[in-house]
Design a protein around this nucleic acid. Sequence first.
DNA 1: CCAGATATGTAGTGTTCACTACAGATGTGG
DNA 2: CCACATCTGTAGTGAACACTACATATCTGG
Lengths: 201, 201
Amino acid sequence: MGMGRPREFDAEMALDQAMEVFWRHGYEGATIAQLTEAMGINPPSLYACFGNKEGLLKAALDRYTKLRNIWMDEVVAAPTARAVTERMLMGIADKQTDPANPPGCLLVQGGIACGTGSENVPFELAARRAQNEDQLRDRFVRAKAEGDLKPTSDPAALARYVSAVSVGMGVMASSGADREALRQVADVAVQAIEAQSAERT
Amino acid sequence: MGMGRPREFDAEMALDQAMEVFWRHGYEGATIAQLTEAMGINPPSLYACFGNKEGLLKAALDRYTKLRNIWMDEVVAAPTARAVTERMLMGIADKQTDPANPPGCLLVQGGIACGTGSENVPFELAARRAQNEDQLRDRFVRAKAEGDLKPTSDPAALARYVSAVSVGMGVMASSGADREALRQVADVAVQAIEAQSAERT
DNA sequence: CCAGATATGTAGTGTTCACTACAGATGTGG
DNA sequence: CCACATCTGTAGTGAACACTACATATCTGG
């Protein structure tokens, strides 16, 4: 028995294009027609490869978070909680205003509120944002153990805080804030972590 | 000439219901059928009164911001930049987890990214968020003039920061964060403003 | 009580949506 | 070169969408 006709498009390149459409228009705002045109394929190819629209979104999210996780590993490699926060938020200011991508963050732009039948989408995005928050929390737990953060500080709360600032910056970027404006936000935000850092001796 | 048959429903009560639908499902996720059912009216009444779906959203946003501005006036009446920030963020933690409303903030849940034909909606929301930010900035300008904030601090950047944290908290609330979690975020966030406050003498 | 004006309820309108049937194309294993 | 499996393009499918035509109902001014 044969193995069938081979796929004529590259799934990852197609996903990159789909990602951009979801990023710019959100899950509900993106239409199959827009997606297939951006991906350079026809609807049957899309459905054969990704199942349905939500399957395509999940595949795009997987690709997005995969790239993002590589970057997050570099972020948490910074030596202190303060340096981690600064590297993360400054990086986000740059990434979210990178003209190579739509402004903001796919994990927010993708869909914060959805209509009946797509209730699952906001959960899917939230779950992936939570992954970053968990990674950050683990890093802050370590910082506390190392005496980098004060003994009274709450790593989970700090991680939630940094995550909230990231999301807020993303929304601002999507509504036109420029890089400098986001860097200023990051700069202020870092000071809260600074306040939770132990005094240098 | 007569004045015509009077409207049989209360426009403000209907708007409150529409507001909740937009809040929960977003602009694109909300259907006319859901809206009319929640408002207790039929489509022709909706269109006669509000023009179209976007007109209804704008009316709902007007009502939302009107109520919110009353509260913001109380917020900026706090005596210091730190107190203003604390009052605002703690209030937001409470409001965004108030079971009387959908979680989060209408100005975010309403629609951060939209499809072709609704590109105007995200701008509309952003403009209204910017109003709050401006009010906060003006308050911080005053705080700086009063010597409450350091002479080196940037009121616009601080206002943008507090606004970003608010938005981030809203997204978290909409994805299930509880009141205590948001209060912890607010508590950390306030420390950045604290760091920009002049020393007490 | 009549004429003009506006609101309401029923029952649609055309359009767009996510998704797919089907036929032809292109590969592999025997 | 043939049986089989998978992909691709064309051309749709039914459903859901925002929105509305129209007849009827209810008001005011004269």
